[in-house]
Design a protein around this nucleic acid. Structure first.
Length: 298
DNA sequence: GTACAGGCAGTAT
DNA sequence: ATACTGCCTGTA
């Protein structure tokens, strides 16, 4: 009986190729991943996640130990094949699914995701990593895992009780005010991310937009990368470039690199309508491609 | 020195 | 509604 159950569990355990996992964590959705020795380690909320390799296959472990975290984190239940075929009416996206096979959206810790993208405003990826790493070092909990030292991502309450100058010392710059505002809302309970996970895209977005420092783009990133809103279609400068390059005929208005809030609404709605319920996957593939095209590393 | 990087809020038309 | 501006910080 038990053996049969174990066999079944083994059979159902999703196999993830090493390449797919590494591509996904390095596709600009998450920032606190690093390679140490032969393995990759990432901070996701209070968990340290580890990806190691056996042959071409990824092996997953974590501290604290959490069975099969990869199922949630890599969204293995999404059914990538069906999503691919659903989006393949668009020939470009169809080709990108072939070109970047295995690239997945992540389901990140919502708090960390929110703070990450608030930090992302008007800066570059190395700086985002530095800000988040500084915050973890200062306000997270120190853990030992595999003989290495790690810091969890700070709880909102810890950020909320930090002083502005302490936060500023994390090189947050003018984002300090927004980080504090978000931490305050989460700590007080007036922003409940778990609740937003259950709400509709529109409801959840409206709530996020109430937070000082969160606009259209940042809200859509949080919705897509942590709150299960796969129909979200964030538009940053890179996606704007991709849209101008490949989808200008779909959008009446001319797409420049900077979109006014009204233009953002218009273009984002247009793309969401065009791609449908998995528009976020299309966005991620387009984003990855235009960055590759520009020869950017991560 | 200056421009620029995965936006946003504030203010003035 | 839309346009324009300043903003922390670090790198090229």
């Amino acid at each position: 009986m038990l053996e049969a159950w174990l066999r079944e569990l083994q059979a159902n355990r999703p196999r993830v190729q090493s390449f797919d996992a590494i591509t996904s964590i390095n596709s600009g959705q998450a920032f606190l991943w690093q390679k140490l020795g032969d393995a990759w380690y990432g901070v996701d909320g209070q968990n340290i996640l580890k990806i190691s390799f056996r042959g071409g296959e990824a092996q997953f472990s974590s501290y604290p130990e959490r069975q099969s975290w990869e199922r949630d984190f890599f969204r293995l239940d999404d059914g990538l094949d069906d999503i691919q075929s659903g989006l393949s009416k668009d020939s470009l996206v169809a080709s990108l699914f072939g070109k970047y096979r295995g690239l997945r959206l992540l389901r990140q810790n919502p708090e960390q995701c929110l703070f990450s993208f608030v930090c992302a405003s008007n800066t570059n990826i190395p700086m985002i990593r530095r800000m988040l790493s500084n915050m973890s070092r200062k306000f997270g909990k120190k853990l030992a895992f595999d003989g290495q030292e790690f810091f969890t991502f700070p709880q909102a309450s810890a950020i909320n009780s930090a002083s502005s100058s302490e936060l500023r010392a994390c090189a947050l710059g003018y984002r300090t005010k927004a980080i504090k505002a978000a931490a305050q809302k989460i700590t007080s309970g007036s922003l409940d991310l778990a609740q937003l996970s259950l709400a509709s895209y529109d409801e959840a977005k409206e709530q996020l937009l109430q937070v000082y420092g969160i606009g259209n783009k940042i809200a859509d990133c949080i919705l897509l990368f942590s709150l299960d809103k796969l129909d979200a279609f964030p538009i940053d400068v890179w996606i704007a470039r991709a849209l101008a390059k490949h989808y200008s005929s779909l959008n009446e208005c001319k797409i420049g690199e900077k979109l006014t809030p009204h233009q953002y609404e218009l273009v984002s709605e247009k793309m969401r309508g065009y791609f449908g319920k998995h528009a976020g996957y299309a966005q991620q593939y387009l984003f990855y491609d235009i960055r590759q095209d520009a020869g950017r590393g991560w």
